[in-house]
Simulated assay, not measured.
Amino acid sequence: MTQTNTKAVDAAAVHAALNLQLANWSVLYAKLHQFHWLVKGPHFFTLHVKFEELYREAAARVDELAERVLATGGRPLSTMREFLAAATLQEGSGDESAIEMVRSVASDYRTLAQELGQAIADAEGAGDDATADLLLGIHESIEKHAWMLDAFASA
């Protein structure tokens, strides 16, 4: 394979990894919004605010990831159909208890963190340090979220 073809393959892998993240963050955004609306019980006031904080962050991640795909010459996924087909995260059912909601989101963050590890490796392998750096920052943030949500749900 020529160097030009290798770069194209590397860029395609980075675009695929970014689009997977884009799809998952889009599904997570909808799930967090759903949980924000439907949470009930003694943790309502705490979780209603927390889910709003997290869905706002998810919205920013969606924009950030889509813009990175475009900046690197790719085409971001942009429809709900594409997001749902590509995502590894699942939508919420709407029937979860407050603690089940927290556990579900924590699990989603752990899945994102695992997939980000591969995406970072793909970006580094392609020599795309800016994308690797962007993804590393996201990775650090969601590890903290998962830890905090796990701590909340274990009480």
Rank of each mutant, 00 (worst) to 15 (best):
Q34G: 12
R56H: 14
A66G: 05
Q34W: 07
A59D: 10
T72S: 07
H48Y: 10
L65V: 11
P42S: 14
D63P: 06
P42D: 12
F35P: 06
G73F: 00
L70K: 03
R61Y: 09
L54W: 12
P42M: 14
E67T: 03
F45M: 13
V69W: 02
A59H: 12
F35N: 12
K40W: 10
F51D: 11
G74S: 00
P76T: 02
R75V: 08
R68K: 05
W37S: 09
V62A: 01
E67W: 01
F45C: 08
P76Y: 03
R56P: 01
H48W: 08
P42G: 08
E52S: 05
V62C: 08
A60Q: 13
A71D: 06
T46H: 13
Q34S: 15
E53Q: 14
F45T: 13
Y55A: 12
D63W: 08
T72I: 10
E64P: 02
H33T: 09
K50S: 09
R56Y: 06
F44K: 10
E52W: 06
R75P: 00
E64K: 12
A58W: 08
A60I: 05
T72Q: 03
L70P: 01
E67N: 06
H43G: 05
A71Q: 06
A59F: 08
T46R: 12
V62G: 03
Q34V: 04
H43W: 11
Y55L: 07
P42Y: 11
H33L: 10
A71R: 03
F35D: 09
V49R: 15
F35H: 12
E67Y: 02
A58G: 05
E57L: 12
E57G: 08
E67K: 03
A71T: 04
W37N: 09
H36Y: 11
V69N: 02
A71W: 04
P76I: 00
H33W: 15
L54K: 06
F51S: 06
P76D: 00
Q34R: 15
K40H: 11
F45W: 14
R68G: 01
V69Q: 05
G74F: 00
R61C: 08
R56M: 11
L47T: 07
A59M: 06
H43Y: 13
A60T: 13
H36A: 10
A71P: 01
E67G: 01
T46E: 15
P42W: 09
D63H: 11
G74Y: 01
T72Y: 01
V49K: 15
A60F: 04
A59V: 04
D63N: 10
H43S: 15
K40E: 15
F45N: 14
V49P: 04
L65Q: 02
L47H: 09
H36S: 12
E67P: 02
E67L: 00
W37E: 12
H33A: 07
R61W: 08
V69D: 06
G74W: 00
Q34A: 12
G41L: 10
A59C: 01
T46S: 14
W37M: 10
Q34E: 15
H48G: 13
H33N: 12
F44C: 07
H33I: 02
V62K: 05
